[in-house]
Design a protein around this nucleic acid. Structure first.
Length: 345
DNA sequence: CAGTCGTGGCT
DNA sequence: TAGCCAAGACT
């Protein structure tokens, strides 16, 4: 039923023809001409792309590669610079691990970025997905690349009925049955491309899918039903106060602790998050604090609502969140209410 | 191993 | 619009 040889031939043909390019990708024709993917650049792109849209990650990739041309440059760089350049990308543990990883490559691997899956798995910030992908792309190792895209494609092809995340292990094993030695790097990227373009979550275009003839879900007219997932509970709400202390065009910021939310990043002082405070004991200094706005920020597992305090004439705007390369705190992602200015478009 | 980690775009 | 989702890793 699922002829692996034919399936791989079909998706690789589709990949060769569709010509999708990414800034860090070496196309098959260039690969054939002798161009070899640079492991450092691939690693950067994969880490930045974890749980992040490629459109969002790409400018960061360009900036990092330009500022730190080699892994040695990155390892030798100041941590604060690396962190500040990550501002806005999210999941900041990735930035801390990025620097850590570069240091390990410099100190324990002679500055040469590893390309075998086993070694890659030992590095900070590199898990099963990233290790498999770097090894496949850079060393043509026949690894089992499984990301969100692949989960969706494979679950549909096999009409996999076990709900995620519990069924993740079984789904991964299913994906593994399609792994072969032939062009592992291109195959992995083709599979992810397929999930990102044709086999989309809500409206897959099955009619032009290279795997249509093998897709059990499509045959049953149930493509969008997969992957089946268990419902997640609603995100709770936490409250707190934030303090915008201005002096000229400067704003007081603090370096947040390394562990936990927004770890290592700059931020305006806030109270603890939980029940809404009833006083200003968490304020950075004594002052006649006046509420100048409200802010909502939705994190992965809770929603944060902050009352923002400052001086009367202070304002908050839509581009003001907690970090900024210059050291200025800037923006809360969504200003619900501002005491002095417009609340949005 | 279930919880902890951002942020923006899409429907 | 309220939820879903994104080239996941770590504890």
């Amino acid at each position: 039923m699922h002829n692996v040889f034919d399936m791989r031939a079909a998706i690789l043909r589709w990949y060769d023809d569709q010509g999708r390019t990414l800034p860090w990708r070496v196309r098959p024709e260039d690969r054939a001409a002798g161009v070899v993917p640079e492991p450092y650049a691939i690693w950067l792109s994969e880490v930045m792309s974890q749980q992040t849209t490629l459109a969002h990650a790409t400018p960061y990739w360009t900036a990092y590669l330009s500022t730190f041309p080699t892994v040695i440059d990155l390892a030798d760089a100041d941590r604060e610079v690396i962190l500040s350049m990550w501002a806005g990308l999210g999941y900041y543990a990735r930035a801390r691990n990025l620097h850590k990883c570069a240091g390990v490559v410099r100190d324990e691997h002679g500055g040469v970025f590893p390309t075998d899956e086993k070694t890659l798995l030992t590095l900070p910030g590199i898990g099963p997905y990233t290790a498999a992908t770097i090894a496949a792309i850079c060393a043509e190792e026949a690894t089992n690349i499984v990301d969100g895209n692949v989960e969706r494609v494979i679950s549909r092809i096999f009409a996999y009925d076990d709900p995620l995340p519990k069924g993740r292990k079984g789904l991964r094993e299913l994906a593994g049955t399609l792994v072969r030695d032939d062009r592992p790097g291109d195959y992995g990227q083709a599979l992810m491309d397929l999930g990102a373009t044709i086999c989309s979550p809500k409206s897959p275009t099955c009619l032009i899918c290279p795997w249509q003839t093998w897709c059990v879900a499509h045959a049953a007219g149930e493509s969008v039903k997969y992957p089946i997932k268990t419902k997640k509970k609603p995100t709770p709400v936490r409250y707190g106060y934030a303090y915008v202390l201005r002096c000229g065009d400067q704003i007081l910021v603090e370096r947040r602790p390394d562990k936990g939310l927004l770890g290592g990043m700059l931020g305006v002082p806030t109270s603890a998050w939980g029940e809404k405070p009833t006083d200003h004991s968490a304020a950075p200094m004594k002052r006649n604090w006046e509420k100048i706005g409200e802010v909502v920020h939705v994190f992965t597992h809770f929603e944060l609502r902050l009352d923002v305090f400052g001086a009367e004439k202070d304002q908050i705007d839509d581009r003001m969140w907690m970090f900024d390369p210059s050291g200025l705190p800037t923006v809360f992602s969504k200003v619900v209410k501002s005491a002095h200015k417009k609340t949005g478009p």
